[in-house]
Amino acid sequence: MGFKLLSKLLVYLTASIMAIASPLAFSVDSSGEYPTVSEIPVGEVRLYQIADGVWSHIATQSFDGAVYPSNGLIVRDGDELLLIDTAWGAKNTAALLAEIEKQIGLPVTRAVSTHFHDDRVGGVDVLRAAGVATYASPSTRRLAEVEGNEIPTHSLEGLSSSGDAVRFGPVELFYPGAAHSTDNLIVYVPSASVLYGGCAIYELSRTSAGNVADADLAEWPTSIERIQQHYPEAQFVIPGHGLPGGLDLLKHTTNVVKAHTNRSVVE
C-alpha cells in the first residue's frame, strides 16, 4: 500500500471513529477524501466538511520552486461564519470567499490569524475590503508590521502568557507558548472536538522541520505538551499544512522538532 493511500485511509478511519463516538456532533463529509496538494491548482481553494458547521479550507501556493498546501478553518456561528487564517495570499483568499459563498452561503463576518507569517495573514486586506472584521493577538499584529505583512485590524486580548485561553464565538483560542513562531495560536472547536494546530503542528508525513527561522526550538516541545494537557479530548487535529489526523500529530511534531534540534547540535 502506497504512503499517500495509507495517509488518506488514516484520515478516513479517524473521521469514521469520530462519527461513531459522537453521532450528534459529527456529520463528516462523505463526498470524498481530504484534498491534497496535487489536486488543488494554485489560485483555487477546496472546502472539506469535518463536522456539522465545521470545515477546513485548503489552498496551495508556490514557494521556492515548489507547491505547498495550506489549511485553515471555518466555523459556523449562528447565521454567520468565523474564518481562521487566510488562504495564503490575496488571490487565494478572494477564491476562498467565493467558494464559501458557493458552498455554504453564509457571510464571513470575523477572521482570526493564528500567527504573523504570510500563509496566515496574506489576504487580510481582501477580507477587510469584503467587510470582514480581522483579528490577531497584539504580538501577531506587531510582528506582521515588522515583517511588512498585512496586519489584522483588531487585537485579541488575554493571550499574552503561555497557557492563556479565551473564548471567541464558537471557538476557544489558546496560546501554548512559542513553537513554530513566538505568537502562534491554537484554535479548538469544543462542539466538535476539532483542534486546529496551525503551523505549530505537523502532518504525519512530514519528517523535516522546514521553516524554523522564527521558531523557538527549545520551547516548542513544552508548548505541545500544554496543548495535549489542555485538549486531551480532541479527536480531529488539523495541521497548518497537509493531512489531518488525531492527537498523534502532536507527538510526531515533537519528535521531528527534537530530531532537528539534535542534528543542529551535532553539526
Score class of each variant (00 low, 15 high):
residue 149 N to T: 11
residue 179 A to D: 03
residue 133 A to K: 14
residue 247 L to N: 10
residue 178 A to L: 06
residue 251 K to C: 10
residue 5 L to T: 09
residue 121 V to S: 04
residue 1 M to P: 03
residue 182 T to E: 09
residue 256 V to D: 03
residue 251 K to T: 08
residue 206 R to N: 15
residue 160 S to P: 11
residue 244 P to V: 07
residue 43 G to Y: 07
residue 217 L to P: 06
residue 7 S to G: 06
residue 186 I to S: 05
residue 13 L to S: 09
residue 184 N to S: 02
residue 163 G to V: 07
residue 43 G to P: 07
residue 95 A to N: 15
residue 199 C to K: 00
residue 25 A to L: 08
residue 209 A to F: 13
residue 10 L to S: 07
residue 120 R to W: 02
residue 178 A to S: 09
residue 237 V to P: 01
residue 48 Y to H: 07
residue 105 G to V: 13
residue 92 N to K: 13
residue 266 V to F: 12
residue 230 H to S: 09
residue 4 K to P: 15
residue 210 G to P: 09
residue 102 K to H: 06
residue 104 I to E: 00
residue 224 I to H: 01
residue 169 G to T: 03
residue 180 H to E: 00
residue 90 A to V: 11
residue 55 W to C: 00
residue 63 F to A: 10
residue 157 E to T: 09
residue 105 G to P: 15
residue 118 D to V: 08
residue 54 V to F: 03
residue 169 G to S: 04
residue 151 I to F: 05
residue 55 W to S: 01
residue 12 Y to D: 14
residue 47 L to S: 01
residue 167 R to F: 11
residue 16 S to Q: 12
residue 179 A to M: 05
residue 258 K to G: 08
residue 116 F to H: 15
residue 126 V to G: 07
residue 212 V to Y: 08
residue 205 S to C: 04
residue 167 R to T: 06
residue 127 L to N: 00
residue 230 H to R: 11
residue 88 W to I: 00
residue 130 A to F: 15
residue 265 V to R: 09
residue 99 E to H: 14
residue 52 D to I: 05
residue 94 A to K: 11
residue 259 A to Y: 06
residue 53 G to R: 09
residue 114 T to C: 00
residue 56 S to M: 15
residue 80 E to I: 15
residue 209 A to C: 15
residue 23 P to Y: 08
residue 164 D to N: 15
residue 81 L to F: 01
residue 55 W to N: 02
residue 6 L to V: 10
residue 173 L to E: 02
residue 137 S to H: 07
residue 263 R to W: 06
residue 10 L to M: 07
residue 241 H to M: 00
residue 88 W to S: 01
residue 254 T to V: 11
residue 246 G to V: 04
residue 201 I to D: 03
residue 23 P to L: 09
residue 83 L to G: 02
residue 175 Y to R: 01
residue 30 S to K: 14
residue 127 L to E: 00
residue 156 L to N: 02
residue 129 A to T: 10
residue 252 H to T: 05
residue 222 T to A: 14
residue 29 D to N: 07
residue 256 V to T: 08
residue 38 S to H: 13
residue 247 L to E: 09
residue 37 V to I: 08
residue 70 S to W: 00
residue 154 H to M: 15
residue 39 E to K: 10
residue 196 Y to F: 07
residue 253 T to C: 00
residue 91 K to N: 09
residue 87 A to D: 00
residue 101 E to H: 15
residue 240 G to T: 01
residue 70 S to Q: 05
residue 75 V to N: 02
residue 173 L to S: 00
residue 231 Y to T: 01
residue 125 D to Q: 11
residue 257 V to A: 07
residue 168 F to A: 02
residue 196 Y to S: 02
residue 94 A to V: 12
residue 94 A to I: 12
residue 108 V to M: 13
residue 48 Y to N: 09
residue 156 L to V: 11
residue 260 H to N: 13
residue 265 V to K: 10
residue 106 L to K: 09
residue 173 L to G: 01
residue 151 I to Q: 05
residue 72 G to C: 01
residue 195 L to E: 00
residue 40 I to W: 11
residue 250 L to Y: 08
residue 104 I to K: 00
residue 240 G to V: 03
residue 126 V to L: 14
residue 197 G to A: 09
residue 17 I to E: 05
residue 180 H to P: 00
residue 38 S to P: 10
residue 221 P to Y: 08
residue 18 M to F: 05
residue 4 K to W: 06
residue 226 R to T: 15
residue 142 R to K: 15
residue 45 V to H: 01
residue 133 A to T: 14
residue 80 E to P: 04
residue 13 L to V: 09
residue 82 L to Y: 11
residue 20 I to N: 15
residue 219 E to G: 10
residue 211 N to M: 15
residue 267 E to A: 08
residue 214 D to K: 09
residue 230 H to Q: 08
residue 28 V to E: 08
residue 142 R to Y: 14
residue 52 D to G: 10
residue 258 K to R: 12
residue 101 E to V: 09
residue 41 P to E: 11
residue 27 S to C: 08
residue 221 P to S: 11
residue 185 L to C: 02
residue 39 E to L: 07
residue 235 Q to N: 13
residue 30 S to R: 08
residue 100 I to M: 14
residue 145 E to H: 15
residue 201 I to G: 01
residue 21 A to I: 06
residue 244 P to S: 07
residue 191 S to C: 03
residue 102 K to R: 11
residue 249 L to A: 01
residue 199 C to G: 02
residue 63 F to T: 07
residue 248 D to E: 12
residue 250 L to M: 08
residue 131 G to D: 09
residue 167 R to P: 06
residue 216 D to V: 09
residue 57 H to V: 03
residue 14 T to A: 11
residue 120 R to P: 01
residue 214 D to C: 04
residue 96 L to M: 14
residue 214 D to Y: 13
residue 118 D to S: 08
residue 109 T to M: 12
residue 45 V to A: 10
residue 51 A to L: 14
residue 111 A to R: 03
residue 149 N to W: 09
residue 138 P to D: 13
residue 78 G to K: 12
residue 99 E to Y: 05
residue 153 T to V: 13
residue 266 V to P: 08
residue 82 L to M: 15
residue 211 N to R: 14
residue 132 V to D: 02
residue 64 D to Q: 13
residue 230 H to T: 10
residue 257 V to G: 01
residue 2 G to I: 06
residue 107 P to V: 11
residue 183 D to F: 01
residue 223 S to P: 04
residue 45 V to Q: 03
residue 105 G to T: 06
residue 215 A to Y: 10
residue 237 V to C: 05
residue 31 S to P: 11
residue 54 V to I: 13
residue 162 S to N: 08
residue 153 T to H: 08
residue 179 A to F: 02
residue 157 E to P: 15
residue 28 V to T: 09
residue 57 H to M: 01
residue 224 I to V: 12
residue 145 E to F: 12
residue 16 S to N: 05
residue 186 I to Q: 00
residue 5 L to I: 08
residue 49 Q to M: 11
residue 134 T to C: 11
residue 70 S to T: 15
residue 254 T to Q: 08
residue 170 P to K: 10
residue 227 I to D: 02
residue 4 K to R: 05
residue 45 V to I: 15
residue 189 V to W: 00
residue 15 A to M: 14
residue 32 G to P: 05
residue 199 C to I: 00
residue 73 L to H: 03
residue 135 Y to H: 06
residue 108 V to S: 02
residue 65 G to V: 09
residue 244 P to C: 03
residue 149 N to Y: 08
residue 153 T to M: 08
residue 168 F to G: 02
residue 74 I to W: 02
residue 17 I to A: 05
residue 144 A to K: 04
residue 37 V to H: 05
residue 75 V to R: 03
residue 238 I to C: 02
residue 140 T to I: 03
residue 199 C to S: 01
residue 175 Y to I: 02
residue 42 V to P: 11
residue 248 D to F: 06
residue 44 E to D: 14
residue 240 G to D: 04
residue 115 H to R: 01
residue 53 G to C: 04
residue 22 S to D: 10
residue 64 D to P: 14
residue 256 V to Y: 03
residue 174 F to T: 01
residue 184 N to R: 01
residue 238 I to S: 01
residue 239 P to W: 00
residue 160 S to R: 14
residue 18 M to D: 05
residue 10 L to N: 07
residue 255 N to A: 12
residue 182 T to D: 11
residue 221 P to Q: 07
residue 101 E to F: 10
residue 34 Y to H: 12
residue 240 G to S: 03
residue 1 M to Y: 04
residue 69 P to Y: 15
residue 139 S to R: 10
residue 106 L to G: 10
residue 157 E to A: 12
residue 166 V to P: 04
residue 55 W to L: 02
residue 222 T to E: 13
residue 90 A to N: 14
residue 110 R to V: 14
residue 199 C to F: 00
residue 190 P to L: 06
residue 87 A to Q: 04
residue 64 D to M: 14
residue 264 S to N: 15
residue 77 D to W: 08
residue 234 A to P: 15
residue 21 A to G: 09
residue 218 A to V: 11
residue 202 Y to M: 08
residue 157 E to W: 14
residue 28 V to G: 09
residue 176 P to G: 03
residue 14 T to W: 04
residue 78 G to Y: 12
residue 137 S to Y: 04
residue 199 C to R: 01
residue 182 T to N: 13
residue 44 E to N: 15
residue 227 I to V: 12
residue 195 L to W: 00
residue 265 V to Y: 15
residue 260 H to P: 09
residue 187 V to K: 01
residue 197 G to H: 01
residue 42 V to G: 12
residue 186 I to C: 01
residue 1 M to H: 03
residue 46 R to T: 05
residue 211 N to C: 04
residue 2 G to L: 08
residue 75 V to Q: 02
residue 135 Y to E: 00
residue 28 V to Y: 06
residue 17 I to C: 05
residue 192 A to E: 07
residue 106 L to A: 14
residue 227 I to A: 11
residue 123 G to L: 04
residue 53 G to V: 14
residue 137 S to F: 03
residue 108 V to A: 11
residue 1 M to C: 03
